[in-house]
Amino acid sequence: MLDFFMRLFRGEDQSKHVAKERLRLVLVQDRTSLSPQALDALKEDLIAVISKYLEIDETGPDVVLERDGDSIALVATIPVKRAAGVARAGR
């Protein structure tokens, strides 16, 4: 019962979120002719390169293509835990 109300309040069941997410994905393909597989590969390569220098929260990275006016930007949000190999206790 509580769960039901929580869902109601947070609006997780709202179909517009599904619509928005599907649109985001399909527009990436439309705008760049880049397949979702290619974008995934790009994301993995990016993470691999950045992991050499920084310790990344593997569950967090988000790589999307966004159109800003007439140009397309690759926007990567990659949460960093700390510098790789320079682990400091307590941080």
Partner: peptide, 18 residues
Amino acid sequence: MVRRGDMLDIDDVIEILA
């Protein structure tokens, strides 16, 4: 439908299309 979250709202569409 927008109110109950079953239709993309204006902000959603503008954000997507820019």
